Simulated assay, not measured.
Amino acid sequence: MTTARLPLFPLNSVLFPGLVLPLNIFEERYRAMMRDLSKGADSGDSAPPADPSAASSDEDEPRRFVVVAIRDGREVAPTAPGMPDSTTLTERGPAAGFGPDPVQAFHRVGCVADAATIREREDGGFEVLATGTTRVRILSVDASGPYLTAEVEELPEEPGDDAGALAEGVLRAFRSYQKRLAGARERSLTTGAELPDEPSVVSYLVAAATVLDIPAKQRLLQAPDTATRLREELKLLRSETAVIRHLPSLPAVELTRAPTSPN
């Protein structure tokens, strides 16, 4: 299986294929990453060039980086979601906050993100809007440049057995969950839009939209196939809906908001 080396963006959250990720970039190592990406430095099969001026300026090229979730307990600073606050770190450099062996601080399965827009602010930070594309397994992490890069291999999405029937069941359970979460007011995260019917798309949408902790979302991301993910989601949705049924005062509006991830 072929591999690629891409910039690595660790977060206290899980990105799924097809989902949109807004980012507010203010830390220098990630500013450097976005400067390179905005200049077309991502070739897709090698690390960004040392000389950014040598990079292509073709804005139609994919501007790819890998989003990976930080393992529980490995974040140095209390900020969440996002990166450790660099002002609290005693060390400096691309691996600051992640220990002497950064790969151990991250989950091994992440998601490639394609930055559709990269806007630089007057203060030097960036506002980025990216979309998850494909799952990847992280093979190694390199901290020799201005920011972390990772060697990754793509994880194919296999359908598994009975994915279509499972997707229908998950959608029914998801609608029930949404209705309970919104206080039975017919309000949902997908109000005004048709839910998809393609099993893998259903599995990723539900994984992203359900209120779960990072380990649970990570397990869904790295499920071996779509059917396995859907089966796990069906159990989770039924369990979560039962819990919500006994918590009528749950602040559903707050839980269903999707804030910009700072870094």
Rank of each mutant, 00 (worst) to 15 (best):
M1C: 12
R5E: 12
F9L: 11
N12V: 13
V14Y: 06
L15P: 05
L15K: 05
L19R: 12
N24Q: 03
N24A: 13
E27P: 01
R29F: 14
A32M: 14
M34H: 02
L37N: 12
S38L: 13
G40M: 10
G40W: 08
A41L: 04
G44A: 04
S46W: 06
P48E: 05
P49V: 11
A50T: 12
A50S: 14
D51L: 04
P52S: 07
P52T: 01
A54P: 07
S56T: 12
S57D: 15
E59M: 07
D60H: 14
R63H: 02
R63S: 11
R64L: 05
F65V: 07
V66N: 07
V66D: 09
A69I: 04
I70N: 08
R74Y: 15
R74W: 15
V76A: 12
P78H: 01
P78S: 01
T79H: 02
M83C: 08
D85L: 07
S86R: 09
E91Q: 05
E91W: 03
E91V: 11
A95K: 06
A96I: 01
D101M: 00
Q104W: 11
H107A: 11
H107G: 00
H107N: 10
R108F: 10
V109A: 09
G110L: 03
V112S: 02
D114Y: 00
D114I: 09
A116L: 03
I118F: 06
I118D: 02
I118R: 06
R121Q: 13
R121E: 13
E127Q: 11
E127Y: 04
T133L: 04
T133E: 11
T134E: 14
T134N: 11
V136T: 05
R137I: 08
R137S: 08
R137K: 13
L139S: 14
S140Y: 02
P146C: 10
L148F: 10
A150F: 03
A150N: 07
E151H: 09
V152Q: 01
E153T: 15
P159C: 05
G160M: 03
D162K: 06
G164N: 14
A165C: 07
L166F: 08
L171G: 10
L171K: 03
A173P: 14
A173W: 13
F174A: 06
F174T: 02
S176I: 01
G183P: 13
R185H: 14
R187K: 12
P196F: 08
P196V: 00
E198A: 00
P199S: 11
S200M: 13
S203V: 02
L205T: 07
V206H: 11
A207H: 00
A209Q: 12
L212D: 05
L212V: 03
L212P: 00
P215V: 07
L220N: 10
P224S: 05
D225N: 14
T226H: 01
R229L: 13
E233I: 11
L236T: 00
L237T: 03
R238E: 08
S239W: 10
H246P: 05
L247P: 10
S249G: 09
L250D: 12
L250A: 04
A252I: 14
E254L: 15
L255M: 07
A258Y: 10
T260D: 04
T260N: 05
S261Q: 08
N263D: 15
